[in-house]
Nucleic acid binder design. Structure first.
Lengths: 368, 368
DNA sequence: TTATAGGATGAAAGCGCTGTCAATGGCGGC
DNA sequence: GCCGCCATTGACAGCGCTTTCATCCTATAA
């Protein structure tokens, strides 16, 4: 009996709303609304009474009603293919750093590398009336594009630059980055350069194409030097794939990994097998995640401007939303990349003695 | 001129709404609403016409209006302190895996290990009328607790179990896990066991207290064996902190790291300095992230049931929301933890020859 | 044929808030 | 002493959808 009564009571306890606060403070609902949003428009005395009532009732504004009435959601919609991937950590951090202090919520949806889920995520965000959409990648389905074009809010495609942006596009050429990483190994004198790639998405694929192009340009047939899988990319998988490669091609001199996790797995596997890095084998990762610099030996990788990319996207979007600026003239921004040479790569041993790693070098792709 | 016209047009193009679709399909708005939500209630013919109109107009339902009118948001609010931390990857995956197929959106907010930001996140989620809140940790501010209690939706606190849950609590004893990890090293014969901890939050602190307790119980004074910082936890920091420890205490025999990233950093630093793991030093991490098994040597760690924890939280919450079940009798579920012994730990060397690693062992804390 | 059930559709009333405009009252200036 | 201005406050409509209840129509039974 008591339980039932308690539950009934619980159920009955309706959430306080604006009019409840107004009644308690002895003012009208509009005044409460103003006191909350623009306190300076309300007299000292009334404000105090309203504050007290709010606290007493535990009032939390109904965001839905507010957004519906004002046609402002203060939501920035973000779609990323993964939360696991260290890449998006910096990316999301930049967005949060920028938007939260400005009173915007960043609504992040994970498409898990699936175009269907991406479509769903986009529809969800549009349904929530996000004031801008920031999306990783340039490869959306037709339906996604249609939705985005009809959304009537600024859209930014990031991570990669393409020829046919929906609205604004800011990123880098994944193909060129893959090419440059491979070229870097070729320049060190290596010829037998393997490539491993997991979670083959569009970007990874284009990095791989860059690799293939570089190899072809160097006159090397790399057909059987590539190991790829659509499975999730993990350190463990890096080790596995490296085992597969080394089993097939015991004499490879270098390996370009599609991302740092794979590179780390490959490095561990080398340690396990007594393969010396970089003396016996050079390893290059991709993204330059935090741990690359700390590994032993430190991993050479391709640094991508993840934070900066998201920050610029945020800035552009914010200007448009604020309505102050016109849409930027430049709808396509190439932020380039940088090869960070570290101890995991070295020149090909020609004599007996290992050579030190090559000095740091940069490759920066300019905007078109 | 053309530009201006285009912009005006763009601005003027209002988003299609229910009544637009209705007009185009020659039915009433209610019918369209039904056709979208419960297609079986609408005749074949009408449904087809509506579908066509929806597609033609690129109609996306206004989620805000829908949620306001129906008092159902289909949002599950989630607060985690970090997206960087590998721990929450599995945790969030479990929540997505469970809720997305059921038509719920998982709204994740990051409190960045700040109680103030957590408060804000909670208020935001309540304002969005999330139908349930799942929060990492049991250490909320007074205001947060008040807000949560007033929200009138199921609340789950996770990751750690405490004595005074707000509603439902599902996790493990961080203190006991820290104790067990240390005890494990003690049982291997080690006495000089250091502890490093970064990003000292409540849970890390309680793991540390477990360590201190275990050391005290073993009659060892560990006052100067602890290295802690509130800075972010990274692999790099693990290396740094390990340097600090080894500089101060060159003769330590083992180290218990507050998480796997630090352990990995410590491992790399050992490799760099030629300290053999586990012959010269045993290393224990915490969480058993994916890469632990692949490292060289593989890292001993404390496995925490992150996925399972979130899954159970989701299940309980879902039952309550659906209204089918009563609230569960058991509001406090202890899922325990497991020590996963791997190659990075070994018995203390008593003679000259290193001994192999200890066999795997488990410690499972039962629910109270 | 008429009564009746049930499926399909529509009309009206909000959900809780904000934008807009009107009303009120106190104050200084002429 | 009267006017007009500004600072406060309130009334009302409506954001786009769903819920509820009423209506209409067809098919079936009596």
């Amino acid at each position: 009996m008591r339980v039932k009564a308690a539950r009934t009571k619980r159920k009955a306890r309706r959430r306080a709303r604006l009019s409840d606060v107004a009644a308690k403070a002895g003012v009208s609902a509009v005044t409460v609304s103003r006191a909350i949003r623009k306190p300076e428009m309300v007299s000292e005395d009334v404000r105090r009474r309203i504050d007290a009532a709010v606290r007493e009732l535990g009032y939390v504004p109904n965001y839905l009603a507010s957004a519906l009435a004002s046609a402002r959601t203060h939501i920035i919609g973000v779609v990323v293919p993964s939360l696991t991937n260290g890449v998006f950590v910096d990316y999301l951090r930049a967005l949060h750093d920028f938007f939260l202090p400005k009173g915007f919520q960043v609504l992040v949806l994970n498409s898990r590398y699936s175009l269907t889920e991406e479509e769903r995520a986009i529809a969800t965000l549009i349904g929530h009336h996000a004031e801008a959409l920031i999306i990783a990648g340039i490869d959306q389905t037709e339906r996604s594009r249609t939705l985005l074009e009809g959304a009537n809010v600024p859209i930014v495609q990031t991570m990669e630059i393409g020829d046919d942006p929906i609205d604004i596009n800011i990123g880098l050429s994944q193909h060129d980055a893959g090419y440059a990483a491979t070229r870097y190994l070729l320049d060190l004198g290596h010829r037998k350069i393997a490539h491993i790639a997991a979670r083959i998405d569009f970007r990874a694929k284009r990095r791989m194409e860059g690799y293939q192009q570089a190899m072809a340009d160097a006159g090397i047939d790399c057909a059987n030097m590539v190991e790829a899988t659509t499975q999730q990319s993990t350190v463990q998988r890096g080790a596995e794939m490296f085992r597969a490669v080394i089993g097939r091609l015991p004499d490879i001199e270098a390996i370009f990994c599609c991302n740092d996790d794979l590179a780390l797995g490959a490095l561990f596997e080398c340690q396990r097998r007594g393969i010396r890095v970089p003396e016996d084998l050079s390893i290059v990762g991709f993204n330059d995640l935090e741990y690359c610099a700390s590994a032993y030996p430190p991993l050479t990788s391709v640094a991508t401007p993840r934070y900066e990319m998201a920050r610029q996207a945020a800035e552009i979007v914010f200007e448009i939303i604020r309505g102050s600026g016109q849409r930027p003239k430049q709808h396509r921004i190439d932020l380039g990349f940088k090869i960070v040479a570290r101890g995991s790569t070295a020149e090909r041993r020609r004599g007996k003695t290992p050579r030190p790693a090559a000095p740091a070098r940069e490759a920066r792709a300019g905007a078109k």
